[in-house]
Simulated assay, not measured.
Amino acid sequence: MKRLAILLLAASCATSAAAQQHGAHPMPAPEPRPAPTETADPHAEHKAHAPAPDAHAGHAMEIMPGHAPAPPAPPVAPPPAAALSGPSHAADAIYGPREMEPARRIFRKEHGAITASQVLIDRLETNVRDGRDGYAWDAQAWHGGDIDRLWLKSEGEGAFGHSPERAEIQALWSHAIDPWFNLQAGLRHDFRPDPERTHIVLGIQGLAPYWFEVDGALFLSDKGDLTARFEAEYDQRITQKLILQPNVEFDLAAQDAPEIGIGSGLSRAEAGLRLRYQFVPEFAPYVGVRYERAFGDTADFRRAAGEDVGGWSLALGLRAWF
Rank of each mutant, 00 (worst) to 15 (best):
K47F: 06
G58R: 01
T39W: 05
P28W: 08
A44D: 07
E31H: 11
T37A: 15
G58K: 00
H22L: 11
D41C: 02
H22M: 06
A55I: 14
P32S: 09
P42T: 01
P28S: 07
Q20D: 05
P51V: 02
A50S: 06
P36K: 15
A29N: 09
Q21R: 07
K47R: 12
A48P: 00
D54W: 03
H46P: 03
H56Y: 13
P32Q: 10
H22P: 06
A19E: 01
E31C: 06
K47Y: 12
P34S: 08
P30D: 15
A29V: 06
H49I: 02
T37L: 14
H22A: 06
P53K: 03
H43E: 00
P28F: 03
P51M: 03
T39A: 08
R33H: 14
M27R: 12
H43M: 00
K47G: 12
P51G: 01
H56Q: 15
A55S: 09
E31P: 15
P34C: 06
A29F: 09
A48Y: 00
H43P: 00
G58C: 02
H43G: 01
H56R: 10
E38T: 15
H56D: 12
P32H: 11
E38L: 15
Q21D: 11
A44Q: 08
P34A: 14
P28N: 07
H43Q: 02
A52T: 09
A40P: 11
H46F: 05
A24D: 13
M27I: 13
Q21C: 09
P26T: 07
A24W: 10
M27A: 13
A24V: 10
A29E: 12
T37K: 12
G23W: 05
R33M: 14
P42Q: 00
P36R: 14
Q20L: 10
H49D: 05
Q20R: 01
A19I: 03
T37P: 10
